[in-house]
Each structure stands twice: as C-alpha cells, then as structure tokens.
Design a protein around this nucleic acid. Structure first.
Lengths: 240, 240
DNA sequence: CGCCATGTTGACCCAATTCAACGAGAGTGG
DNA sequence: CCACTCTCGTTGAATTGGGTCAACATGGCG
C-alpha cells in the first residue's frame, strides 16, 4: 500500500506532481482538487498547425499546455489574421471564456507539436466557487494579462512596424530563448511573425532585411539570431 | 433612534444606498462591508482636465466614478498619447493596480467635471480576502475587460483610421447617448478623439470631413451627430 | 524529378504623418 | 470694450510609411 502511494506520488502525469502546475494559478489548488482534476483530465496531442479551438467555440473545459507552443489569434473584419498572444508550457488556454461562460474570443493553433491536458470546466467552476485562494490567483493573473493587453494597444496604435518588429524579436528572445548557436529557439514562419507584428508579410521581410543590413540580426533560412540587443532595444523607444 | 436609522438609510451618500453600486462588482459586497467602506470613503471633485492619477502612481485606493467621464490613457515611447478606455458613472478606476499591488499602468484624467468616491484599498483587499462572491464578480469583470482589450488590439493592428473612427463614433453613441438634438452627448476635443482612434489630429479631422461630405454625420462646432448609423456600421466591417 | 508552400524582391499606389499656415472663439488684462 | 494671446479646429502640400500585386527564387517532400 505504501509503495503504491509512492508510485502515485511519482507519477508525473498526475496533476498533483505536474511541474507545470507550479508556474501558474493552479499552484493555489488544494490536494483534493488536484486529485479530482487529475482523475478526469485528458491528455491530448496536437500536431503543428492543428487548431486547439476556434474563435466562437464553446469550450467544455480549459487546456493546460505541457509542451509546445501555440498562437492565440483572431481574424479581423477585413480578413487578416492578428496573433494576440503566444502561449507555451504552463499556460492555460480558454480560461477567460470559461470564467465568463462565453464563446471563445480567440482561436488557438499549435505552432509546434503539442502535448496538452484538457480539464473539464466543472473543475475550474468548482474551484472558483469554493477555493478563494485559487480565485485570487486567477484574478491576479488576469489583471496582469490585462496590463499587457493595454500596453499592446498603445504599441499597435503608436509604433511603427520597425519598432514593433524589434519588440517582437526581443520578446521571442527573452521568452523562448535561443538554440546552441544563438538563434531564436522559436522558428515562426515569416507570415506568423507578420501576424504578430500586425503587418503584411512582404513588409515584415523587408524590415528584417533592413535589420540584417544594419547588423542588428543575422538570418539563416528562416532562423533568426539577434546580434545587437542593445540597439534593438533603443529602437523600440526613441525614433530612428 | 428609529428615525435616525431611517435617515441613514435614505442618505444617498452612503455606499449602501448608492445607485452606482448596482452597476458593478460592488453589488456583491455584504452590508457590513459597505458600511465600513462608506465610513472611510472620501468624496472628491475633479475639474475638467484634472488628473485623478498618473501612470506610475502608487494608489492608496480605488476611485468609484459617481458622475462625469474620464479618459484612461498612456504616453507611448515616442511621446504620443493613446486613450485606452473611457470610464464613466459606475466604473471603478485603479482596481487593476490595487489587485496586483503594482504602480498604475495608465493615467486617468477628467474629461468633464467629476464627482468620485475614493475608497482606501484595504477595503478592496479585505473583501477580496474574505468575500468570494466579490472576488468572482471582479474576476468576471476583468475577464470581459480583457476580451475588449484583445479585440482592440486586433482593430488597432488591422483596421484603417476610417474604420476605427466609425467604430469610435458608434461607441460614443451607444455608450454615452445623444442630447435632445441628436448630437453625441460626450463632446470630446478633436485631439482626444484622435487619441482614442490612434492617429494624428489632422487626419482625424479630415476623416470627419469625409464622413460629413458623404452624409454619414453632421457637425456643428465640435458637436457631432450621426446620420447614417447603418452605413457607418458597414464601414467598420467590409472595406470601402 | 516536379510540385507546392514559403521566402524574397521590385514597382506602384494609397494611407498616414508631418510641417506649416491660418481662422475662430474663449478668456484676460489693460 | 478692445486688443491680446492661447488654444483649438481646419486646410494645404510634401514626404514617408505601409499595403498590394506580380514575378521569381528556394527548398522541403512526395
């Protein structure tokens, strides 16, 4: 019996032991909540390019990313895609729409092969109902998401494509890191980068070319390596 | 004694009786919480143009708008102001930064003479700590703010000034209504409208002029009247 | 080997910013 | 009361930034 419990404790597929949990509001869940969650959760695989859900879907639960990266995006009225956020290991997707009991506002698509836990929404609802610590943690998280979103609004409205690209490159660098050669780990397609920046693919490529000519970056195929972090950072602020 | 209590109940300056309260998450507060809040709240007046707080301030509490309208804005790195949100009667300002115990991310400025209740943050913190219904209400509210912000990101990134202006006009119409002549009640300055739309004042004015020529709106001084709501709405979506 | 998706470049056009000038109304002080 | 200034609205014209279309390269991948 003791050894059985031990085994269970070591099982990394159990939410109780999931390292991912440490990274976000699920940290505030009690043991019993985690156990129940773990018993009814479902692990799913998504291949690169597959949608986790689409804008307007009604979700029966939330997705907890164990591995891989996904984009959260929306098609604007004039038909162009805008990527609002990149979500990676440890992030919860679909939380917002479960909280408000609405349809999802954004689509989620795998940018790499992904491993994702699907957690039925009843668990979230129950915990929101009777675990104030959890609710508070979620609230804090949502508050900082809102801050980021507000800042993004200002950037989109006021900055040039050049500045926004510089910002995105640094974001990709600090959040997803580099491979052994110093190239950005996350290899987005040119058109995905354009959709993050909020511009056309052609202009995105031209701006990348400029950066290369100015010695700010090096490219090798689709891979990008940041050379002059400092100048890139200056770019974001002052005009030039 | 009985008559005294009666008087107190009718006193509209008491949070317990404040009509504003019905409009938002404060509805979820208990009577005792409201009483305590009411005893330590402070009513303040702000004149048109005065700041309630500035980006980067540390707030000792939140502001509950009783009357008047304010803008929440931020100066971008290249020095231009972007208005992120207009807040009116019944809205709570500074809530986000109190929740995350951070400096404010946005500045708040009165666009009209305002009457505002200042509520020390301890009340919010206490209620978040021991009134789950309140926390949930705040969470829901923040979740829908986040949705709005995400949509704004997409609009800013993908729509033209013409489309964004159409959107803002309709927003002003539906949220703040019109005077008896059908003109928009909220008379923003041209440069404030430009700061909401995210463009230069000159272009804003030109776009307004185009709308006038096309019979979509009428202007009289700074006042604006929407004539063709339908066409304006179509504009926002399809290109034209 | 050839196909299809993705990356790249050129040229053109429209959208948006910027600088400059001017007019009109709202105080304000003489 | 007028002249003054200040801010705000408005218009013109020049310039830059960004979007679009079309052509072509490149590079996995069946």
């Amino acid at each position: 019996m003791a050894s059985f419990e031990n085994m269970e404790n070591r099982d990394l597929n159990r939410c109780e032991n999931c390292i991912i949990r440490q990274m976000h509001s699920f940290r505030a869940l009690r043991k019993d909540e985690l156990k129940a969650m773990s018993d009814s959760k479902e692990t799913r695989q998504f291949k690169k390019g597959e949608p986790l859900f689409k804008e307007g879907d009604r979700l029966a639960g939330v997705f907890c990313v164990r591995n891989g990266i996904s984009k959260l995006s929306k098609i604007s009225d004039n038909g162009k895609e805008q990527i609002v956020k990149l979500a990676t290991k440890g992030e919860i997707l679909g939380q917002r729409s479960v909280i408000t009991s609405e349809q999802t506002n954004l689509s989620a698509t795998a940018l790499e092969d992904m491993e994702v836990c699907f957690i039925p929404k009843s668990h979230i609802e129950n915990s929101l109902h009777d675990n104030p610590a959890f609710t508070n943690a979620v609230l804090k998280h949502m508050a900082s998401e809102l801050k980021i979103a507000d800042d993004t609004i200002v950037n989109m409205a006021q900055k040039t494509v050049r500045q926004r690209l510089a910002e995105v490159l640094i974001y990709l660098h600090t959040n997803f890191g580099t491979d052994e050669d110093g190239y950005l780990y996350l290899q987005l397609s040119r058109s995905d980068i354009a959709d993050v920046v909020g511009t056309a693919t052609e202009l995105l490529i031209r701006t990348l070319t400029n950066f290369r000519k100015e010695g700010l970056i090096i490219t090798s195929g689709k891979r990008i390596k940041i050379i002059d972090n400092k100048l890139l950072n200056q770019l974001i602020q002052g005009h030039s």
